[in-house]
């Protein structure tokens, strides 16, 4: 062996090292494949089963058909529940965005002593309001206010739960818009609502979009509140409707559940893509310092 060259490893050790590396790689890929399958298989089932005439718990397309969709749309309860979900989502979104924008603007501009404490306490309570712990008082409150069994009631309760977080996020956006924008508008004679409409809202539009989509998606998937507050089957939203796709014997109707599940998922995916495209889920305030 010449001076200065690295001593070559003995052949046996070299092979062992190689084998160990290959085995480690294989183990890693197997693990990743298992994890991927764990998440991908339900997705595959969700996408494939609605197009199968006799879906089972196995993901696959044994008998391809579109009849499931035709059947489903013939079912008036299904159409009604999707419409109810849209009403609930849009209604709550409008209430949350409008109220949160005004509240966040006020909290951002008027310095009430301890306004941060107010906000944090509200934020803390909001997780209680829509949580199961508060369901009995909320039910009683809704009953006494005669908004039980109405879309309005559900919208108000859901909006109440979403508002603190929405105000919190929007206030951050509003805080980052320089005061000189509004001051210059004030000097030109603009009133508070004019300033909000012409200056503040356009500047925090990405924040409003985030709040809007987030509240719609949350309401779309909420089960407990409408389940408790709505008694009339004609008012049931999609999230509760799925619950009724069982035969009298208690076995799941997989044709309906899978088809309905796919339809129920699509709006959320579409909303995500739209926001992703327009705003890229970046949190920015449109400010040049």
């Amino acid at each position: 062996m010449a001076e200065g060259t690295l001593p070559a490893a003995p052949p046996a050790a070299d092979t062992r090292w190689l084998v160990r590396a290959v085995i480690a790689r294989v183990q890693l890929y197997v693990f990743i494949a298992l994890v991927a399958a764990f998440f991908a298989l339900p997705m595959a089932w969700l996408v494939l089963s609605p197009f199968d005439a006799h879906p089972t718990l196995v993901a696959g397309l044994a008998h391809p058909t579109l009849a499931n969709f035709a059947d489903m749309f013939r079912n008036p309860a299904v159409r009604g529940s999707l419409l109810n979900s849209v009403l609930l989502a849009l209604g709550t979104m409008v209430v949350v965005v409008a109220t949160a924008a005004l509240a966040a603007y006020a909290l951002s501009r008027v310095h009430v002593p301890g306004h941060n404490v107010i906000l944090y306490v509200l934020l803390l309570f909001s997780s209680v309001v829509t949580g199961s712990a508060a369901m009995v008082p909320i039910f009683l409150l809704a009953y006494d206010l005669h908004i039980i069994n109405t879309i309005t009631g559900v919208v108000l309760v859901l909006a109440g739960g979403l508002l603190p977080a929405a105000i919190f996020i929007l206030k951050d956006f509003m805080d980052s818009t320089p005061a000189s924008y509004e001051e210059s508008a004030r000097v030109f004679g603009a009133g508070p609502f004019q300033i909000l409409r012409d200056i503040v809202v356009p500047l925090v539009r990405p924040g409003l979009a985030v709040i809007a989509v987030w509240s719609m998606v949350t309401v779309w998937g909420n089960f407990l509140t409408p389940f408790i507050l709505l008694r009339d089957p004609s008012l049931t939203p999609a999230s509760v409707q799925i619950y009724s796709f069982y035969s009298a014997g208690g076995t799941a109707n997989l044709r309906l559940i899978s088809t309905f599940g796919l339809l129920y998922t699509l709006p959320v995916v579409v909303m995500y893509l739209v926001v992703q495209n327009r705003y890229g889920f970046r949190f920015y305030g449109g400010i040049k310092h």
């Binding site: 210059s184 004030r186 000097v187």
Partner: peptide
């Protein structure tokens, strides 16, 4: 209030 004073202001950051 500022509006009816009929003044115009140019801010340091131009706003």
């Amino acid at each position: 209030p500022p509006g009816p004073r009929k003044v115009a202001m140019v801010f340091q950051d131009y706003a």
